[in-house]
Design a protein around this nucleic acid. Structure first.
Lengths: 101, 101
DNA sequence: CGTGTAAGGAATTCTGACACG
DNA sequence: CGTGTAAGGAATTCTGACACG
């Protein structure tokens, strides 16, 4: 289920090229818990294409004056909804095929 | 038709991490015309996931003693075949729908 | 709170070259 | 031919801090 889109391989300089965001901003949004780049052996941050898309969304929201705390809250809400939907789907599949989960 | 797989965004250090090939080898295969990374503004090489897959194939062939010249020749042959196939397909489509290309 | 900037160090990348085989 | 390595410079990245608002 994880493809190229989620592989963390892009350095912060390239992310800056791709998004136009300053490295300061990119690091700050991480500090606020909005995204989680991996680290290479020597400690440099590595981002995925998904991270880049997320950063663009964050940039849009920030332009509208939305604070990072609110952005984080919304992200958590959305994730919860998504988790519930996949739980329900899984439950229905179980009911049909397993009888006993 | 171009997706994340072909976007050139990965620095040589990460390519080395991912493939296990030395930077020397990676640059040399480029010198021999086997792959074509892009350059960032400041001149650092940028590779795609496709490039990484290609590098793994090259590494396998090199292990079998195949020279870079032969590898290049084979790659050109394959590309030609592929081009011909898509030309033929295009021709058939034209014949069916256009009558006159 | 969100972002810029100067600071200093450590790690990265680049090129051209010499070495060996 | 294919690859390692030492060399020197330029660019990158990192962290912690101060500034402003």
């Amino acid at each position: 289920m994880i493809s190229y889109k989620d592989k963390k391989v892009i350095t912060i300089g390239i992310v800056h090229e791709l998004t136009g965001l300053s490295e300061r901003k990119i690091r700050y949004y991480e500090e606020r818990g909005l995204l989680f780049p991996e680290r290479s052996k020597r400690g440099t941050r590595k981002y995925s294409f998904s991270d880049i898309e997320l950063l663009m969304k964050i940039a849009d929201l920030r332009e509208d004056g939305v604070q990072t705390t609110e952005i984080k809250r919304d992200m958590i809400r959305e994730k919860r909804k998504k988790d519930i939907r996949s739980e329900m789907l899984q439950g229905q599949l179980n009911a049909h095929f397993n009888r006993r989960p």
